[in-house]
Nucleic acid binder design. Structure first.
Length: 644
RNA sequence: GCCGGGGUAGCUCAGGGGUAGAGCAACGCACUCGUAAUGCGUAGGUCACGGGUUCAAUUCCCGUCUCCGGCUCCA
């Protein structure tokens, strides 16, 4: 018997029965065979070292692809579990999947793993890898599986749930064995442990069984695995780069903001330089909101509990709200976690006509949310934050255009800050709990989808992931080092207009309910700054840099001229510092560089005489001397020009 | 909130049952300097906070706050 395999180039070739993926790869090229870690046959991944069971379309998965690395990492996870079970008899092992950049495995053990434990485990793994144990696939019945894992409760639970979960053949489960270690696994795996060339354990952490905090907490070990030591080293270097960009560290170094203990968790104070950065960002926000037809409103930080009762927040958002304050007449006031009810009240302040819709209300609103203590993180997850929030009230026939307009607006804004890679999630109506009318849901969802298509950005549909009150788009950006951050959101709301009984007069003088669109463009100013700091590694473009230029006098007899230079630049709108410190020029240059000022101007005798300066731009390691002051002013004005 | 690890000078960190140390930063003096650290000196700490053990606690124990890495959650 023979099998017919269709290769990715479309060619069909015949192979003898018993041919393995490895053989197929070998027939194409020895380098391909060496890099092969699995194959895909008609969409299903299979081991490269086992016979291909039937004819079909085949593709070799190599270790230098994300799919291939997943196979390596999955195998590495097995080896780690093997090492843990060797070293810690009685340990129960749960699940160990590959993840982005690595893998983990969860264990139930007597005591949590220490850093020393990780070293031991890593050492044991190295031994297992050196032994080059073969991974063998096996299939057993559910009964046999349950028996085999008699003392492994998590594995038994997985076996018992296997048919329900994966739609797999309910009568058998697949196993992988290497040496004496057996794990329940779908595979595929590399042919032997020796294929793992670069594995490193990263850290231990607690994690709940099946991700549910009601379940027992397990001990998770994270590791990473790559096809070569070189790739591993590159990965570690990327982690270090991320550390160098950490906005908490840069925020301190650049004197932007801090998180004083006296304040409380998740609360920041903004120093003058951070304040300037914020101001630029907020000024920009107001400018473009105005240009896009938003009107500015303002609302207080607290409101009666009744308002939150009406809005429904006390029902579904109470966990994230700071507790109520008891006031004199038994009134309770609550610090706002959102701005929407206030904007609704603005809408409701008088009767509205169809002619004035869409009504776009915008506010940089400070909100406070009670985040659980373990989740706060620098500026990226705080308890006090400022949303560049807007609420648009529109008619049904305006929904499509408004949503499109909001998306265009958000993308323009993000592009102005140097982000140009976007991914969006379109979250649709939940299956069970939802409010509003079905046709409105469909209209809004379709409009969101069309807007995404028109904007030509990649998006995924998250079926049923929308809030109960409406569909939404979340926009993620990729930063300079490829990390994904959620920023903006455009959210349709059928609930609040209902709860507050909003209406407007139609052209036929009927009463109709408006549709509401929530949108935060930056997400929050705090998070946006945090992401921006990491994106630019603190080296902000001219218009955002808190200090745009520093002027350095060579000796103190040049101080006066330095101030004069600074004065002219300030008059032209450039933010300038003059470094009058009694230091060497080298020291002052160094300080300006480490402070990441976009421009350094050095002035000495020649400059005083000729009305010039030496100019050095950030990122360049040489300077231009004797540049006429007028040229410098013109150059800096251009360099610091705001996008809109 | 849960699991683990931390909190020593402004920052980075060393130390350790007998009331603490370095580098950088700060301050002073000298140097007056042309593109990434001039030299010398001075000052600076209730060792996060509260309790306990002890003749003695910054060190050991407990609690609280807070930070870090995860889980869960999320802008």
């Amino acid at each position: 018997m023979a099998i017919e395999l269709t290769l990715p180039d479309g060619s069909i070739r015949e192979f003898p029965d018993g041919t393995t993926g490895f053989d197929v790869a070998e027939s194409i090229g020895s380098r391909l065979a060496k890099a092969a870690v699995a194959i895909e046959l008609d969409g299903a991944q299979l081991d490269v070292h086992r016979p291909i069971p039937m004819s079909g379309a085949v593709r070799i998965i190599t270790q230098n692809t994300e799919e291939g690395r997943s196979v390596l990492r999955h195998s590495a996870a097995h080896v780690m579990a093997q090492a843990v079970l060797d070293l810690y008899p009685g340990a129960k092992f749960a699940i160990g999947p590959p993840i982005t950049d690595g893998f983990y495995y969860d264990f139930s053990v007597d005591r949590p793993f220490t850093p020393e434990d990780l070293e031991r485990i890593e050492q044991r793994m190295a031994e297992i890898i050196a032994e080059d144990q073969t991974f063998e696939r096996d299939e057993v019945s559910v009964e046999e599986g349950l028996e085999l894992f008699a003392d492994q409760p998590f594995k038994r639970e997985i076996i018992e749930g296997v048919d329900a979960e994966e739609g797999a053949d309910a009568n058998s489960v697949s196993l992988y064995r290497n040496a004496s270690f057996v794990d329940l696994c779908r595979g595929p795996h590399v042919s032997s442990t020796g294929k793992l060339k670069a594995v490193k354990l990263m850290r231990a952490a607690g994690a709940y069984w099946r991700g549910d905090e009601k379940n027992p907490q397990l001990q998770r070990i994270y590791g990473t695995a790559w096809e070569t030591q070189k790739e591993l080293a590159a990965h570690l270097e990327r982690l270090e780069e991320a550390e160098r960009r950490d906005h908490r560290k840069l925020g301190r170094e650049l004197d932007l903001y801090s998180f004083p203990n006296e304040l409380g968790s998740g609360l920041a104070v903004w120093h003058p330089k951070g304040g300037m950065l914020r101001k630029e960002i907020e000024d920009y926000s107001r400018r473009v909101h105005g240009q896009y037809g938003f009107e500015f409103v303002n609302s207080p930080h607290v409101a009666k509990a009744q308002l939150w009762e009406t809005s429904g927040h006390l029902g579904f958002y109470a966990d994230n709200m700071f507790p109520a304050m008891e006031l004199d007449h038994a009134d309770q006031y609550i610090v706002k976690p959102m701005n929407c009810p206030f904007h609704v009240l603005v809408y409701k302040s008088r009767s509205r006509s169809y002619r004035e819709l869409p009504l776009r209300l915008s506010e940089l609103g400070a909100v406070y949310r009670y985040e659980r203590s373990g989740v706060v993180h620098g500026l990226l997850r705080v308890r006090g934050m400022t949303q560049d929030d807007s609420h648009t009230f529109c008619r049904r026939d305006q929904v499509a255009e408004e949503l499109n307009r909001h998306l265009q607006f958000v993308l323009m804004l993000l592009r102005d800050f140097g982000f140009d890679e976007f991914e969006a999630d379109l979250s649709t109506r939940p299956e069970e709990k939802w409010v509003g009318e079905l046709d409105l849901w469909e209209l809004a969802t379709d409009s969101l989808r069309e807007a995404l298509v028109a904007a030509e950005i990649d998006f995924q549909v998250a079926e049923g992931e929308g809030a109960f009150y409406g569909p939404k788009i979340d926009i993620h950006i990729r930063d300079a080092i490829g990390r994904r951050w959620q920023m903006s959101t455009i959210q349709v709301d059928f609930s609040l207009p209902e709860r507050f009984e909003l209406e407007f007069a139609t052209s036929s003088n009927d009463r109709e309910r408006p549709v509401m669109i929530h949108s935060a463009k930056f997400g929050t100013v705090e998070r946006f700054v945090g992401v921006l700091v990491e994106h630019y590694a603190g080296a902000f473009p001219g218009w955002l840099a808190p200090v745009q230029a520093s002027v350095i006098p060579v000796a103190d007899r040049h101080d006066e001229y330095a101030e004069q230079v600074a004065g002219e630049l300030r008059a032209a709108g450039v933010r300038v510092d003059v470094d009058l410190a009694i230091e060497t020029v080298g020291e002052k240059i160094r300080r300006a560089i480490t402070d990441k000022h976009p421009v350094i101007l050095v002035v000495g005798d020649n400059d005083v005489e000729n009305r010039t300066a030496g100019i050095r731009l950030r990122g360049e390691d040489s300077e231009r001397r004797g540049v006429p002051l007028d040229d410098i002013v013109a150059e800096l004005v251009e360099l610091c020009e705001r996008p809109r």
